[in-house]
Design a protein around this nucleic acid. Structure first.
Length: 927
RNA sequence: GCGGAUAUGGCGUAAUUGGUAGCCGCGCUAGACUUAGGAUCUAGUGCCGAAAGGCGUGGGGGUUCGAGUCCCUCUAUCCGCACCA
């Protein structure tokens, strides 16, 4: 019987489906293991060969864990809300649900062909009301909670109300937006509207006027992680800053915990580092500088309070509310012009002109609280309104930005830190600032002579003692803007009464997405939901018109998989306590600052409320590398329809043209297919080398426009899913980016055929021997058991494949068809190549699925050798090898080596200076 | 500018973590079987050299009996952040 992969794969996929082989339920008798893939957004283009890479790796791991006796949860679903489907809907008028559904079907077909062990009964789609019910529910919970900084957790808003009744907000330490202090009496005196407005400043889901990334082309607001270099990540449209009323999630309240708990996670250092940078914690002090001739002050944040004696001017963000009152009549016009200029600039322009120093004096002065000198107050773009207090004390001697600013506008520069033993030089001669974090403080009154770290401690004490300010930790992490002015997303479970938002009762959820007549904004510029006829509560209060962003639905999907059909809750306590959290999460690094921050936040919030039992969602995370494309080129002789082969192209004046990689094999162009590829090439002529047309090649992004997209279906049809799975793993380390080149796939396919042939005799009949295996055969299989187990544990799937190849090559050489060897081999390969493994397993006479077999046990005893082939080197260069009995004493080894005839040859008459014997490793003779 | 990662044959890669550099596969060369070969099998294949031998893990330097692996330095590529006070 030949290895008929398509028949075998169809047969077993059917079998798995009929027998629900991958269905999984809570089973307290077995340890659980949760393996998760980042679920895909089902795009219209379908999967290319790069997408399943991580899925295959996690599938291998899942199957391995199952064979080891774990109860493995390995689900899959779809991140189904999103912009592309809606953009398509705008163009075609087709409901996004419809295109989404079609795309999902195609994804499913493609996924099914590859033979994954997903429990499809647990599939979720974020766009279905049964699913987004719980997205909305979590939002309502966030609306109804605030963050208590003292207990470091989310608490019910009622507790806050009780506190306000008692003490106003004078004693509370909670995460909140900017708000005035009020007493209990003042609280009680407020009407409902005022009270609600006040509470809004504390809610974890809150409505606020904020500067947002507005994308006119997409007609929506975007989150910071959805914008890159001033353009939208999806679509690449320009983004501008705008102030708008938006729903936000107070994720900044969790900044400290999000940062600290990174320590507990088994993620790569680079990914943790990205998150640390994104959260951006910095320790410093808040200090008030008095405004000259006024009782008011300017609050600044600084990480270097030790340099305060060198603060020779102050700078405010142009957007700062203080600007108005600080600007003297004399400077009014200049300041206004500057602000207008700054406001008009898009984010893009700001970045392009980042090096250009601009600024404007306000006419006012502040008093440096330590030097007691008058220092000018400026405004400049380089100070950001959104970070710290939107104002800085400028220390030009020790901050490069302040330095450049001072140089440009001729402001004084005072050095306050110097290198020990170094004589301070005239700052007027400096060409750059001295941004040192170490050194001895000078020119700084009470701080003189102290080391920077001591100086910081001393000055902080004084700042607090003098009532000038306090120590403070600042975060770069901003609250997540949660509104999108779009149709295809979760509706907010919110209605408005007197212009104030109220949450819908939890038992009224889900609030289903209404039908609209077009997926465009209304004529009044409202979001598409403004078109829905009955978009209000039964009492007539209008619902929110925005919808939630893409990350809403993906923030808790890993919890929903634990209990996907539950209509009483997101996840039952029982299911959550059994599955706990994700043991292994595999996905791309592109979600480092988006999804992976949001879902950690979401999970922590639910943890605070007691709905989930673990405070982190993903224990271990692996980022698979990107699969790049490998493009092919043909070379057209300019002005002709002639194409010249790669190595001859230098003799002609040619244009390089991308050619579809699917009509090229081993860089040899199929000229007939090329002529048929596009009408303009129908009459193409070729200048060949050795009768072939050789194409050039390059590694590029896999994309349609480069004609280098390879579809997994095509590979599966030609070679089979098992070959695809193994080849994807064989390409290289999982985490590394690498180009896809279909050429190498033959080797893997040949390997599977050789594996198959181990079970067959020369006449192509199944032939398995029940004889006892020889020592050599046992050694081969146990070596492989050891290697494969280790490699899977280390996620080193590429070396695993090579170990299989070595094993099959060696067994082929030994002509081994013993059950004792082939049975464990079949189980070993089942995670990588489940279809052929099932077929072989049944060929071996088993009735159950190979998935229910037991992972073979490795026995060291079969690998023990009596001698070691020892490399003998001279001056570090290996010259020959010698079989030496294991654990032979050093001096005997030395004797044996020196006695060897080859040794004399390499000594060449000289006597050895030194002989190094590393037992069972190497012998090195120094001459 | 800051932070991180990577660099090994024609190509994808491997190397028990300081101990025989190039495993496995592609490609290539030669041969066998064959009406045929984009099938299969056998042998070879880092580079230079007829050979002996020499050279060789991005470049330079160092530690060591011994370095792809450790240290210093430079270069290139990729990724993340970017006026974050």
């Amino acid at each position: 019987m030949d290895y008929n992969f398509s028949a075998i794969e169809g047969k077993w996929q059917q079998y798995w489906k009929e027998n629900k082989t991958y269905k999984v339920d809570i089973d307290k008798a077995k340890p659980k293991f949760y393996v998760l893939d980042m679920f895909p957004y089902p795009s219209g283009a379908g999967l290319h060969v790069g997408h399943p890479l991580g899925y295959i790796a996690s599938d291998i791991y899942s199957r391995y864990k199952r064979l080891q006796g774990f109860n493995v949860l390995h689900p899959m679903g779809y991140d189904a809300f999103g912009l592309p489907a809606e953009q398509y809907a705008i163009q075609t008028g087709q409901h996004p649900a419809l295109t989404t559904d079609i795309n999902i079907k195609r994804y499913r077909e493609q996924l099914d062909k590859i033979g994954f062990s997903y429990d499809w009964d647990r599939e979720v789609r974020t766009c279905e009301p049964e699913y987004y019910h719980w997205t909305q529910w979590a939002f309502v919970k966030m609306f109804k909670h605030y963050y208590n900084n003292v207990t470091q957790k989310a608490e019910p808003i009622e507790q806050l109300v009780a506190e306000f009744e008692q003490n106003g907000n004078t004693k509370i330490d909670a995460a909140c937006s900017e708000i005035e202090t009020f007493t209990a009496e003042q609280w009680r005196a407020m009407d409902e509207k005022q009270q609600q407005e006040t509470l809004l400043a504390y809610r974890l889901a809150y409505l606020a006027d904020t500067m947002v990334n507005w994308c006119p082309a997409l007609g929506t607001v975007l989150a910071n992680d959805e914008v890159k270099e001033g353009f939208s990540v999806r679509g690449g449209h320009p983004v501008e800053q705008r102030k708008m009323k938006q729903w936000c999630l107070r994720i900044s309240a969790y900044a400290e915990r999000l940062l600290n708990d990174l320590e507990t996670l088994d993620w790569t250092d680079s990914l943790k580092e990205i998150q640390r940078n994104w959260i951006g914690r910095s320790e410093g002090a808040e200090v008030t500088f008095k405004i000259d001739g006024s009782d008011n002050g300017i609050l600044v944040f600084t990480t270097r309070p030790d340099t305060i004696y060198g603060a020779t001017f102050m700078v405010l963000a142009p957007e700062s509310e203080l600007v108005d009152q600080l600007t003297t009549p004399e400077y009014k016009q200049d300041v206004e012009e500057y602000i207008t200029m700054a406001k008009r600039k898009t984010e893009r322009e700001r970045q392009a002109e980042a090096k250009k120093v601009t600024g404007q004096f306000t006419g006012s002065y502040a008093i440096n609280p330590f030097t007691e000198q008058k220092i000018p107050i400026w405004i400049s773009e380089y100070v950001l309104a959104g970070y710290g207090t939107g104002a800085i004390m400028a220390v030009p001697a020790h901050d490069s930005r302040d330095f450049v600013f001072a140089k440009t506008f001729g402001l004084p520069i005072v050095q306050t830190v110097s290198q020990p033993g170094e004589t301070p030089t005239d700052t007027a001669t400096w060409t750059e600032s001295y941004d040192a974090k170490e050194g001895i403080v000078i020119n700084s009154g009470m701080l003189n002579g102290l080391e920077v770290k001591e100086a910081i401690r001393t000055i902080n004490e004084n700042i607090e003692k003098l009532g000038l300010g306090r120590c403070k930790v600042n975060f770069r992490l901003r609250d997540a803007i949660f509104s999108r002015q779009r149709y295809w997303g979760e509706p907010f479970p919110v209605y408005y009464k007197d212009g104030l938002p109220y949450a819908i009762d939890e038992d009224k959820l889900p609030l289903e997405l209404p039908e609209v007549d077009a997926y465009l904004p209304t004529e009044q510029g409202e979001p598409p939901l403004g078109r829905a006829k009955t978009w209000h509560t039964p009492e007539g209060y209008p619902y929110e018109l925005s919808t939630m962003p893409g990350f809403a639905g993906s923030s808790a999907y890993y919890l929903r998989y634990m209990d996907p059909k539950n209509d009483k809750g997101l996840v039952s306590k029982e299911a959550n306590e059994y599955w706990e959290n994700v043991d292994l999460y595999i996905g791309g690094t592109e979600h480092a600052t988006g999804h992976l921050v949001y879902s950690r936040f979401w999970n922590k919030f639910l943890f605070d409320l007691g709905y989930v039992c673990k405070n982190e969602p993903f224990k271990k995370l692996i980022n698979q590398g990107m699969i790049q494309g490998r493009s092919n080129f043909v070379y057209r002789v300019k002005g002709t329809n002639q194409f010249v082969s790669y190595n001859l192209r230098k003799d002609y004046d040619v244009t390089e043209i991308h050619v579809d990689v699917n009509i090229v094999e081993n860089d040899v162009l199929d000229t007939e297919k090329f002529r048929a590829w596009r009408p303009e090439f129908a009459e193409a002529e070729f200048i060949l080398e050795n009768g072939k047309y050789i194409c050039g090649w390059a590694v590029e992004k896999m994309s349609k426009s480069m004609y280098n997209v390879v579809n997994p279906d095509v590979i599966v049809d030609k070679y089979g899913a098992d070959t695809l799975r193994i080849y994807e793993m064989f390409l290289g380390p999982l985490e590394q980016s690498k180009p896809w080149d279909t050429n190498g796939i033959d080797g893997v396919h040949k390997f599977l055929r050789r594996l198959w042939r181990l079970f067959q005799n020369a006449n192509n009949e199944v032939s398995i021997s029940n004889d006892t295996a020889t020592k050599d055969e046992l050694k081969v299989i146990h070596k492989t058991i050891k290697k494969i187990s280790q490699d899977i544990e280390n996620f080193s799937f590429n070396t695993g494949v090579s170990a299989f190849m070595i094993c099959v090559n060696e067994l082929t050489d030994l002509k081994c068809n013993k059950r004792e060897v082939l049975e464990p081999l079949t189980i070993l390969i089942a995670p990588y190549a489940p279809h052929i493994a099932e077929e072989l397993w049944h060929m071996l006479g088993h009735q159950q699925s190979v998935c229910d077999a037991q992972w073979p046990e490795f026995k060291e005893e079969y690998l023990v050798e009596s001698s070691f082939t020892c490399p003998i080197s001279f001056n570090g260069k290996t010259r020959f090898t010698l079989d030496i009995p294991l654990n032979l004493p050093k001096d005997e080894v030395e004797k044996m080596v020196l006695a060897h005839e080859q040794t004399a040859r390499f000594l060449d008459g000289k006597s050895p200076k030194k002989i190094i014997v590393v037992p069972n490793k190497i012998v090195n003779i120094v001459v």
